[in-house]
Design a protein around this nucleic acid. Structure first.
Lengths: 253, 253
DNA sequence: GGTTGGGCGCTGGTCCGACCTCATCGTCAG
DNA sequence: CTGACGATGAGGTCGGACCAGCGCCCAACC
């Protein structure tokens, strides 16, 4: 090949697997393989794409892990109906929650500390704190319909941070922020649960109202209720029923 | 097969890939392959696990997609260094150091967190936890008359640590220990206040009784009362390192 | 005729062993 | 002392074989 190195567009040219992956994604997204349809067999794909079947398999497996595609042994590989669920978050929670009590412990600490923070906030909140929290509620509402996960995460982080600030305890705010950062993945997945945006909106409202009213006990209870509901949904997403490693969660799209 | 259908267990046995995946996860989780370490090569893994390299590859690729592991072509596969249980301790120590001058804030956080710990302990305490706390009471009593400050400090630290352990939340215990370490000076001076040993003894007794009785609300109140009394005495002794807290909390719900 | 069983063909799952590419490191010439 | 370079060993790709589920169709049977 005397291509004279004109193809400089791709230094570090993507690996074969990456190219196969990208191609499959494109074909799925542009409707060549519409939701519910069956993909060509791995052998046919490897033949048409001029790559080995093993490479095709790795790409398809990845698509499966991403939730884009559903593999049925002996039957074929099918495009999932729920389009563009290109996220591994589900898998992540599954693994993190199940194999590490660590996250669980952090969630518990957050619950204890944040409920305390709510009490403090109910004592010391300033108007600007209340205003900051109020703003995030608007942002959450705006991001809830249609669902915009990144925006939801942002507004959620904003609300909790505003609450922390309202305690007037810098060290406490910093600690809670640090804990929240460690739970980034979990906070993102939580929104996958049906109706979570609405519930968070209502629960945040309840917290804010209690803080604004200056009723520490109610603020505390509201925070505990909020965090408990989120935690229970996370636990459900992570399928806490099996402690060992039997078989992968068979989910349907 | 003339097995007569007796062996009905394990139909739907997990696929080989799933088993490899689970195994790798377990080995990473339990510290056999700590963060930053290099995994055995794919060939070695396939050899040790008695599965083909291709299968190992699919599992490793999935771990890579999940972000558990980082693959470096030509170099090896490495466990991703991510916020894990080991780093938490250090992060919290750093945090306490950053706020080591903000004694009031730390005391407040300790109060909020330790009262929560008492609730947890009332739920989950084991006999050995209660025994450990009981021991420290004896030690405190022994060191109270005549007053032996180092011994008092030691038994006091022991009591609170035993309480933390009783929560069954390792991370919480480490956090509270870290905070306690930052308050070493205060914990030493507190004993200067007249009658402190006796009061601590009584208050610790009340906390222990509430935890032993399994009454979270009482345990919480007892801890708050104890810490508040210590804090107020510290304030009277003239705490030299007060900082930017607007105003101390007056009551709680 | 309707049901049932089994064979067949297709699909994904697993295995093997060879070769390629890449990153690192020790060695050796300059 | 320094830089080039090959040895080494890691992941990446290949292809071709066989195993294991699943659906379908047809033949045998009630």
């Amino acid at each position: 090949m005397a291509d004279a190195g004109v193809e400089l567009t791709s230094l570090r040219s993507p690996s074969v697997r990456e190219r196969v992956l990208a191609q499959l994604r494109r074909l799925i997204e542009d409707g060549t393989f519409p939701p519910g349809s069956r993909l060509p067999g791995e052998r046919e794909l490897s033949d048409q794409m001029q790559v080995s079947r093993g490479t095709v398999r790795e790409a398809v497996q990845l698509l499966s892990a991403l939730g884009v595609v559903k593999i049925r042994h002996g039957h074929g590989t099918f495009v999932r109906r729920r389009p563009g669920a290109e996220d591994v978050r589900q898998e992540w929670v599954d693994w993190t929650v199940r194999h590490s009590g660590h996250v669980r412990e952090l969630l518990e600490i957050r619950r204890g500390l944040e409920s305390f923070a709510a009490e403090l906030a109910a004592h010391r909140r300033e108007d600007r704190d209340l205003a900051a929290m109020e703003e995030t509620l608007d942002a959450t509402a705006a991001a809830a319909e249609p669902v915009d996960v990144p925006a939801l995460v942002q507004s959620d982080v904003g609300f909790h941070h505003a609450l922390y600030e309202a305690t007037g305890n810098r060290a406490l705010a910093e600690l809670l922020d640090a804990i929240g950062q460690r739970l980034t993945r979990e906070r993102a997945t939580a929104w996958d649960f049906a109706g979570r945006p609405q519930r968070s909106l209502e629960q945040h409202r309840a917290i804010l109202d209690a803080i604004a009213a200056g009723t520490p006990a109610q603020a505390r209870d509201a925070v505990i209720a909020h965090l408990r509901s989120v935690e229970s949904e996370l636990a459900q997403l992570g399928d806490p029923t099996s402690t060992d490693v039997p078989h992968p969660s068979r989910e349907e799209g």
